[in-house]
Nucleic acid binder design. Structure first.
Lengths: 183, 183
DNA sequence: GTTTATTATGCAAAACATTGCATATCAATA
DNA sequence: TATTGATATGCAATGTTTTGCATAATAAAC
């Protein structure tokens, strides 16, 4: 049940509503664990049924009411326990790579286009990552402990992203020779 | 329905039984799209119900009978069409990174252990990748088109894997300072 | 004042994945 | 001849994720 744990992780330091969680996920934990708002709302209900989260309704000026969730003691304990459990190596699933197994002269152009699009996505993401690093993680040695962990996750994202850009360039080069041959 | 497409991709050049597919997945396409044997058997039934795969029973000496699946014309068409569709950027899901967001002095040692284990997994996988590369992909320019695509997927796996090893080293170094501080 | 965008939450169905079990053939070994 | 291991296939239950739809409050723009 890792989505639940990801949500609790996001709630470690701030109480948030489902909407806020869904929005924040897009620019932080969601880099490493994506989830849709439907999933988040469902999971929040489950977690509060288990009393791992508490909830309270908050009235707002100029906006609909929201339901704000916060970690309970039991939630913190469950999360800490989960961290101590063991995870198996992540199952990779990337259909772009499966598609590459189908490369032929008729689809090489299309695949090059897909790679180009992904490359651009990754550029945007790297820009975000770097912005976050500059703002909040420029001196990793001096960070409080938890933030060092977040820093490492960010570092991972950056390194993988840069590697991906380099791979895209290599792939596009090879694909160009395929399309050229096909006339 | 990407699992179905991954299976059909594996059947592009050879007819295979469910058992053989499940086994082969572990050392080729499964690097990029993992699946259990239960999933594979279920999906094979669906695909043959749709007439995207044909099946025939094969008797063997010294082994139980097997059901061998092969691509139909309709299957090839459906697969080719799928390749031309667009995929969205892959949703990352890695609970090790979520766990890192929970770093504190009490779990730093455990997390370092998890990273070490993953590092070893990756070393083993890289060894496999390199073996495959040396054996079958040492001269990428001269490969037939489809194999060039497979080569690119392999290249991706290798580059990402090497990057991951480097990240692990960096992470372990930083984690060591955390555990040291905590006494 | 009507439309559009943002904030906010959710249901229901379908698709997909995991877990645990169940079965059966044949070869080799103890 | 009983057990173990590899081969071979599958069901059922549960859990997770995606997809499509639905609702509603308020602010801002037109």
């Amino acid at each position: 049940m890792a989505l639940g744990h990801a949500i609790m992780t996001a709630l470690l330091e701030d109480d948030l509503s489902g909407y806020e969680l869904a929005r924040d996920f897009e620019t932080s934990l969601g880099f490493f664990w994506q989830a849709s708002h439907q999933q988040i709302y469902q999971e929040l209900r489950k977690l509060s049924d288990k009393h791992w989260l508490s909830k309270r309704e908050v009235s707002q000026r100029g906006k609909p009411n929201k339901i704000v969730y916060g970690m309970t003691r039991a939630g913190r304990e469950a999360l800490a326990e989960w961290v101590f459990g063991s995870t198996r190596t992540q199952a990779a699933k990337d259909d772009l790579l499966v598609k590459l197994y189908n490369l032929d002269s008729s689809n090489a152009g299309h695949l090059a286009g897909e790679i180009t699009a992904r490359r651009e996505d990754m550029m945007r993401r790297l820009y975000l990552y770097e912005k976050i690093r500059r703002r909040h993680y420029s001196l990793p040695e001096t960070l409080p402990t938890r933030r060092k962990g977040v820093y490492l996750a960010l570092t991972m994202g950056i390194a993988q992203g840069e590697q991906f850009l380099a791979w895209c360039d290599e792939a596009l080069e090879l694909l160009a020779t395929v399309t050229a041959e096909s006339g």
